[in-house]
């Protein structure tokens, strides 16, 4: 019974092409270890260096975004050992063999319009405009970790092939489940 449950869970991930997944509370301490395992596995699979680096880069930006912005977080964690935020991060390959990094987390419903606007804007830009926008944000964002600075999302768009895919599902009056997927 127990094996059935976990086997079904595993199969569901397989069907999506997911080769790596983490669901639950994430901390900055976790980022290094997970990132290392992903790089190691991709190197063993003889993935091209640039592909590995792009996947790694998108992974880092997504996980750090979840840690910083997930609306589902352990309270009281920040004072002692850093932020602890709930989310999902996955890496997979589609049937054409393209790698993708997909993540999800809860957001405040009030944040959704801003997020959509930001992502739609990023997706509307071509290669050169995206580069110009990135530079403008680097020059003008108030500080390295400013909330609302969309540098992390622009970084993801620049490492991705094609637009960033996203989807939002309202789960209550004030919360929504936000998903983001980028192909490399």
């Amino acid at each position: 019974m127990m094996a059935d449950t976990y086997h079904a869970f595993r199969n569901m991930l397989d069907e999506q092409g997911i080769i790596f997944s983490y669901c639950g509370y994430m901390s900055e301490k976790l980022v290094v270890g997970l990132g290392e395992a992903i790089k190691q596995k991709m190197e063993l699979d003889a993935a091209d260096t640039n592909t590995t680096k792009r996947v790694f880069s998108i992974f880092i930006e997504q996980v750090q975004n979840i840690i910083r912005y997930s609306a589902d977080r352990a309270t009281g964690a920040e004072e002692n050992r850093g932020q602890l935020s709930n989310g999902v991060i996955t890496i997979g390959r589609d049937q054409q063999g393209r790698f993708f990094v997909a993540g999800a987390n809860m957001v405040q419903a009030t944040e959704v319009p801003k997020l959509r606007q930001r992502l739609d804007h990023i997706n509307s830009l071509d290669h050169d405009s995206l580069k110009a926008y990135y530079k403008e944000r680097l020059r003008n964002a108030p500080d390295a970790d400013s909330k609302g600075a969309s540098i992390g999302l622009i970084e993801i768009a620049r490492r991705a092939a094609g637009p960033i895919q996203y989807d939002v599902k309202p789960v209550s009056n004030d919360m929504a489940f936000f998903c983001l997927k980028a192909f490399v």
């Binding site: 750090q64 622009i154 970084e155």
Partner: peptide
């Protein structure tokens, strides 16, 4: 060999 977006800002 790698830096994230907040390091790019720095």
């Amino acid at each position: 060999n790698y830096f994230n977006s907040s390091s790019a800002k720095a």
